[in-house]
Amino acid sequence: MRQFTHILRKELKDFFVTPIAYIVITIFLIVTGWFFFSTFFLYDQASMRNFFNLLPLIFSFVIPAVTMRLLAEELSKGSYELLMTMPVTFGDIIIGKFLAGVVMTVAMLIPTLAYPISISFLGQLDWGPVIGGYLGAILLGGAFSAIGVFASSITHNQIVAFIVGAAICFTLTLVDKMLFFFPEAILNPVEYLGANFHFSNISKGIIDSRDLIYFISVIFIGLYGTYLILLQKE
């Protein structure tokens, strides 16, 4: 087996042996559940659209909270030194930690499958946007995890890692809602930067290569940035 799988499994053990995973999942479910269902019956529509509209904003706080410890903790405790003297490469470490973030995102999303299932009993649910929405949510979780891992690599302090990570994710979520601040000439590139913009395309059930490329590039940039930071720590 590749080395990164061992790191991934160790990180997951850390999440699920300690209360971190359960606390994060619970908070995520309470927040999404409350905001989604408090208006669900007013709209009187069997649709998950409002749930997916919420996700980018909630993810931009929850995912950095999950990823903040991934590297910052190792750096502050010094276990990074032990890790680096074992036969692993930077790539193994970064991929392992990143995938731990993605798996946590999936673990948060799985209980929410109860929503579409129960909605489908209430009315005619269109499964296309739901599947697209979950696919987009995983991509969005991946992009935010990559950003979170990067934020975690630049500091020894987990709180700083969380704030930096949340700030970047929050900016990417909101930038397409701030378009009126920007001159017309750069409107399109700025809109393209917005994670929300791409996510809402996918969650409508439209899978466009531009949106996929956006998420894959954010993941790549985040992870490559982490690599450069770790390289510089030598």
Binding site: K10, V17, T18, L82
Partner: peptide
């Protein structure tokens, strides 16, 4: 390698 202060993952 045994480092100076043994920095392990405390939760495991």
């Amino acid at each position: 390698y045994l480092p100076e202060s043994s920095p392990f993952y405390k939760d495991l």
